[in-house]
Design a protein around this nucleic acid. Structure first.
Lengths: 295, 295
DNA sequence: CGATCTTACGGGATTCGTAAACATA
DNA sequence: TATGTTTACGAATCCCGTAAGATCG
């Protein structure tokens, strides 16, 4: 017992035009081939569906009963496969991703624009949450991938670097440091320092690197979001060290930013995905846009 | 683009056991054959449904979306064909037939018993209506066939004789005619005659034959149903001529019935079907029971 | 007799199984 | 290295098309 979609299609075509000859033309099939196809179908279902003589063609009562069922089956079938095909060809679908705020509020919008231009029918959900949560959403399968700092080697996650982000010193254009030509850590420790609270990964990274070098900051203000830090620096509460991702935002707020060295603090920004879980074509298409942008 | 049911079955089997090797055993297929089948399916739908390496096997997001759809499609498909198969093998179904009252209330019940014994799952609707309506129901497709008197050659109907029914004289066991050894028409015309109203086909047939022989009955009571005639004869309102189909009923009412000759009135009882309209397997099975009974 | 479906049969495509190669944990 | 999937290739099967045959109106 093996019935094919083609057989159903054949049956429906014959019923539609009420003729084997015409149906065979419709299906681009020789008439005898169609004849045997119908015969085979009837054999597998156990009885005649079409009563035919040389001059008459009619549905049997059983064929009459089967007809609407066959129509529905075929329609369902075609629908399902057209939808699946559309899904693969990115003609519709959904994409969920998470991104740390520093990326979501800076680089991400332009990538979304590129993606939407190329695949206008795909709906995108962006979860702009703190880096730790962005990673968690990948681990729990809430999103297909995240864009964030390297979460360090994890058993169930993999990371692909997009670019490396250097941290730069930031202060108001009214600040005394404006007079300093080459701003270093030794200058920054002398001023009230604004930074993120523990257990932010950025704060942790910074603390660790500076501790190795015996540099101790005068941390006066602590907050949750880098965007807040930037605003606080603009309000001249103190100085800070900010990922250069915020360059544009800092320029808009009329902040001064300077490259730092010895030690250079930088962190790789990239795509975090779940190991052993394949990405959807949609996610791959998005990631491809990111890759080609950052080379 | 040609997807087969087999491919869907293959896909679902792989998902079910989460292994190509096990799935191939389940499907009685070599593992490479299964591999290529999945590959072909993926090619036609335009992307991967299963992400597989030598040690891991997982659904792609698209496969995950397709999985419930595939399950439903296959279930619908199998259901439809099992039902159709059952219909052909007479394991369920409906049958509608019409029968003239003289047959419906006499012979039919025992045939229904035989049919129900052999095909207990089939529901039967019996339309016991006057012969003219029984025939009309075939013409309009309300029933597949009728059991009635020969409606004479009709363009759109065909008739198959089951048996010939002779009309017999009927009267009460208290009637004077009991003394007559061989009852003939010449005796009947002397008594009040009970018969059917026009335009009953039986009445018409009788009138025509008797007119040819210049026999004129003393029609005193006219009614619609033969069953009523029989009862009226039993109440000693008069005599009548009744199809011998009613023999048993007449015996139960303690009526006397005698064969008549010159002229003999008889009419063929048989199966009336619609020309150019095939019968269902169910109807054919029923008719076969009738045929074998009446040879 | 003519239009239409069925049967017969040879050729071609598809699918299958075996064996070997390949890949990953 | 061992397990499991893919590739390669010859064989069987299935399906198609042409041609001839059968049948009904």
């Amino acid at each position: 017992m093996n019935i094919t979609i083609k057989q159903i299609r054949t049956f429906l075509a014959v019923v539609k035009v009420n003729s084997f000859v015409e149906a065979s033309e419709l299906l681009h099939l020789s008439q005898p081939a169609l004849s045997t196809a119908i015969k085979k179908l009837e054999e597998t279902v156990g009885g005649k569906l079409l009563a035919r003589s040389t001059r008459t063609l009619a549905l049997t009562p059983e064929g009459e009963i089967f007809l609407p069922v066959a129509r529905r089956l075929l329609a369902d079938f075609d629908n399902a496969f057209i939808e699946l095909h559309d899904l693969f060809s990115l003609q519709h679908g959904n994409l969920s991703l998470s991104a740390m705020p520093s990326f979501a509020s800076t680089h991400l919008p332009q990538h979304l624009l590129s993606f939407n231009k190329e695949y206008p029918a795909i709906k995108v959900k962006i979860h702009d949450v703190i880096a730790e949560d962005a990673v968690k959403m990948v681990q729990t399968g809430k999103v297909e991938f995240a864009i964030s700092f390297d979460p360090d080697t994890s058993d169930d996650l993999s990371f692909e670097t997009l670019f490396s982000d250097k941290f730069v010193a930031a202060f108001s254009k009214n600040h005394k440091l404006m007079k300093v030509k080459k701003v270093g850590w030794q200058h920054l420790i002398k001023h009230p320092f604004i930074t993120l609270k523990h257990p932010s990964s950025i704060r942790l990274l910074m603390d660790n690197i500076l501790a190795e070098q015996n540099i101790f900051l005068n941390v006066t203000f602590e907050t949750n979001q880098l965007a807040t830090v930037v605003q606080m620096v603009a309000t001249e509460l103190g100085v800070s060290v900010i990922p250069s991702l915020y360059k544009q935002q800092m320029q808009a707020l009329n902040l001064e930013f300077r490259e730092l060295s010895s030690p250079v603090i930088s962190r790789r920004v990239g795509i975090i995905t779940r190991r052993r879980y394949p990405l959807s074509q949609t996610a791959q298409a998005f990631i491809e846009i990111l890759r080609s942008y950052y080379q």
